[in-house]
């Protein structure tokens, strides 16, 4: 019961925003800005009017949402693993950093939509191409933050590690990574919502998924459906972020306790 009321307290801002949104769009009477009640009705009809056996999800929802989320997570996890490895490596090796820095800076300034033709040429449309697009688009904040985090390790901690004759692996896992963790988490959290964005873009040129649905709605001037997909993406982002924060809190609790008693 207390948990429930805490959740209510935390989400009070949602009905307020919805009410303001509803009133202002009603006042505007613009087809480009339909009121949220109309958007929600469209969403319900399209995606949430299925049978109880499928949790009320329609075939349309089931045929699109799970695929999208799967690809999103695959791309994000891949970019997390690769980005962390690479980021820590260049954070700890100034020489490697000097070699690859211009390439990284160049790569992350390239708009991913402009690289889609290349990914399409290599992988054709499909899950592989979409996962690669997502990974490419979201890996930069992870690399960046991991490198910065690994570079700025407290010298006192490193000194301690040296005194205690830590092996390379121990130094990495017990000193460098824990110290870089807050920054790595900041990068991962950024890349999670970026991954949603990339997912939508990559699906524009496919034949199913949330991005495909958005593109269809845009092309057909179906503005309530278009807003509906935007809301789905937003809600998905909120939920993923909540899950992420939960995981992060666990990881960083360990981190802060580790920090209080170094080594």
């Amino acid at each position: 019961m207390r948990k429930f009321s805490a959740a209510v307290l935390r989400l009070w801002v949602v009905p307020v925003v919805l009410a303001v949104w509803e009133l202002s769009t009603r006042a505007m009477e613009q087809p480009f800005f339909p009121p949220p009640s109309k958007i929600l009705a469209t969403m319900g009809e399209l995606w949430f009017s299925g049978s109880p056996a499928t949790l009320f999800l329609t075939d349309e929802a089931l045929g699109n949402f799970p695929h999208s989320v799967g690809r999103l997570l695959a791309g994000w996890v891949l970019s997390g693993v690769l980005g962390m490895t690479f980021g820590v490596a260049i954070g700890r090796s100034p020489l490697l950093y000097r070699f690859v820095d211009p390439i990284i800076q160049f790569g992350r300034a390239l708009p991913p939509p402009a690289l889609l033709p290349m990914f399409l040429a290599i992988f054709n449309t499909g899950t592989k191409m979409q996962v690669v697009t997502i990974t490419f688009g979201v890996i930069w904040p992870v690399i960046f933050n991991a490198a910065d985090g690994a570079r700025h390790v407290d010298p006192l901690h490193l000194e301690t590690a040296r005194v205690f004759r830590f092996s390379r692996a121990q130094r990495l896992f017990r000193v460098i990574l824990p110290s870089a963790l807050p920054k790595i988490f900041a990068g991962l959290r950024l890349s999670l919502s970026l991954a949603l964005i990339l997912m939508v873009i990559a699906e524009f040129f496919s034949t199913e998924g949330i991005g495909y649905q958005l593109r269809l709605a845009q092309r057909g001037f179906q503005l309530p459906t278009m807003w509906g997909t935007v809301i789905i993406v937003g809600v998905l982002g909120y939920l993923l972020n909540q899950l992420f924060l939960l995981a992060e809190r666990r990881a960083l609790v360990w981190h802060s306790s580790a920090r209080r008693n170094p080594a």
Binding site: V13, F32, L194, V200, V230, V233, G237
Partner: peptide, 25 residues
Amino acid sequence: ERALRPVTEFLRPIPSVALIPLAAF
């Protein structure tokens, strides 16, 4: 931060490509 989090976390992943046609208006 906690109060605004639902709003910011909702807005953050919304692709700008979806908003550009609306912003154009």
